[in-house]
């Protein structure tokens, strides 16, 4: 379970909060899509959740553990797939998985079983012996996903997971996300692909200028605004605020 309680982040001496009193609760087994335009605060929220940033105000709880008070314990519960291509690319795919398994204290037996299973699912078995620097963007995304799953985390956080994936890889990833949510894990991901959010999420949240402006199941949100699609709804909700997109948090 993930809970943001009045989570606020102000960068430096900025007069604008990148994340403004965010309140959010995502239960076990929920597949949650976090939507918003560029610079809305999605990455800031994810960085707060994963412990890379400290909140200026409020707190974030992961299965009841405060990420600021007990960061190491909280991080152990999370499998995180970053959006950037900055990885430890001097390692081979297999070395990376073994590294992640060591960091999360996964037994030899479990890492072998899960590693081989996910390498097979993501069709990466043949490439696992090569350096990550030789991988395409999609392959890097896949190995990062496997690395995030190697310790079988109860919470899976993905930042823009569909970027750079070919249709087949995107399908495989979406299937895995659905499967894990069905097994009881919390899956939280940010995306720009509204169609994906509409089709697969149990719940979506739309954030703009650091504030959560709407939340609910895709069907509920659409029903609240008549027959509009999620795309039309998103454009309507975020359009009027487009005049001040400094995108400060994203740049930082």
């Amino acid at each position: 379970m993930i809970r943001f309680e009045n989570a606020t982040k102000v960068y430096g001496k900025s007069d604008r909060a990148a994340l403004d009193h965010l309140n959010l609760e995502i239960g076990d087994g929920c597949l949650y899509g976090f939507l918003g335009p560029n610079g809305a605060g999605k990455t800031t929220a994810i960085r707060l959740l994963t412990g890379a940033l400290r909140a200026t105000e409020g707190k974030i709880l992961v299965n009841g553990i405060d990420t600021a008070e007990r960061p190491v314990e909280a991080k152990r519960l999370i499998g995180f797939v970053p959006d950037s291509q900055e990885m430890y690319d001097k390692l081979t795919g297999w070395e990376y998985l073994n590294f992640m398994a060591d960091i999360f204290g996964v037994s030899a037996e479990d890492r072998k079983r899960r590693g081989e299973k996910y390498l097979e699912i993501f069709e990466m078995t043949q490439a696992a012996g090569d350096r990550i620097s030789s991988y395409s963007r999609g392959m890097k995304q896949k190995i990062a996903s496997i690395g995030a799953l190697i310790h079988n985390p109860p919470i899976w956080v993905l930042d823009e997971p569909m970027v750079g994936l070919d249709p087949r890889a995107a399908f495989l990833l979406k299937e895995e996300m659905k499967r894990r949510a069905a097994e009881g894990a919390t899956v939280f991901f940010s995306t720009h692909v509204l169609e994906v959010a509409e089709k697969m999420c149990d719940k979506v949240g739309i954030i703009n200028q650091g504030k959560l402006i709407m939340e609910g199941s895709p069907e509920d949100l659409i029903a609240r605004r008549g027959d509009a699609s999620l795309e039309e709804l998103f454009l309507e909700l975020t359009d009027k605020d487009q005049e001040s997109p400094k995108e400060e948090d994203e740049r930082k």
């Binding site: 430890y88 390692l91 297999w94 073994n98 590294f99 398994a101 060591d102 960091i103 204290g105 996964v106 037994s107 030899a108 890492r111 072998k112 590693g115 081989e116 390498l119 078995t125 043949q126 490439a127 696992a128 012996g129 090569d130 350096r131 620097s133 030789s134």
Partner: peptide, 27 residues
């Protein structure tokens, strides 16, 4: 450029457990 050998099987990987320190030191 990077030489790629997309032929390995996972059987050749020695999945062995190590500590976080060892992993970071090795990295």
């Amino acid at each position: 450029e990077r030489t790629v050998h997309r032929t390995r099987r996972t059987e050749s990987f020695g999945w062995r457990k190590g500590s976080a320190f060892r992993a970071l030191h090795g990295l």
